[in-house]
């Protein structure tokens, strides 16, 4: 428990160690730890920025998808409408055509009937004349009675 010259030696040892640490240890440590802390901070900032960008991109992508979906729906609706219209138009045309065909057929049938009727009348007229001539037992002179006959035939034909 005595103070003697030992402490002078201890001071020298202490100062040497202090000098070594102050020169070679703490500045290097401080510089590198600072640099690393900065790097970590930068990394975190970059990560945060990346996350924000991602969120933004997701939002944008969502908007684009939504828009595309809407457009698709519009196109679909339009196509459906157009096809309906086409079907309607075709139906219209078909109806018109069928009506036309039916009326044409009907006309043809009625004209055919009329022709048959005329012919029948004509033949009936001839038959009547022939019958009458036989009844009168003499030849009706076609020439002399042509006017009469024609009138008669006409009347028959007219019904």
């Amino acid at each position: 428990m005595t103070i003697n010259a030992t402490f002078i030696g201890q001071i020298i040892v202490f100062l040497i160690l202090l000098w070594v640490i102050a020169k070679y240890v703490t500045p290097a440590m401080a510089a590198e730890i600072d640099a690393r802390n900065r790097k970590i901070a930068d990394g975190l900032a970059a990560a945060e920025k990346g996350q924000k960008d991602l969120a933004e991109a997701t939002t944008r992508a969502d908007a684009i998808v939504r828009e595309a979906r809407e457009r698709a729906k519009q196109i679909e609706d339009q196509a459906a409408r157009r096809s309906n219209e086409a079907v309607e138009a075709a139906k219209q045309i078909a109806q018109t055509e069928s009506a036309r065909i039916v009326s044409a057929a009907r006309e043809e049938a009625s004209s055919e009937t009329n022709r048959a009727r005329d012919q029948l009348r004509k033949e009936f007229g001839t038959l009547v004349v022939t019958g009458a001539a036989r009844l009168l037992e003499r030849e009706v002179d076609a020439k002399t009675h042509a006017q009469l006959l024609d009138k008669l035939a006409d009347e028959i034909a007219r019904g």
Binding site: T2, N4, T6, F7, Q10, F14
Partner: peptide, 8 residues
């Protein structure tokens, strides 16, 4: 040793 602590 007191010398050691006194030095510091």
């Amino acid at each position: 040793d007191l010398n050691g602590t006194v030095a510091m």
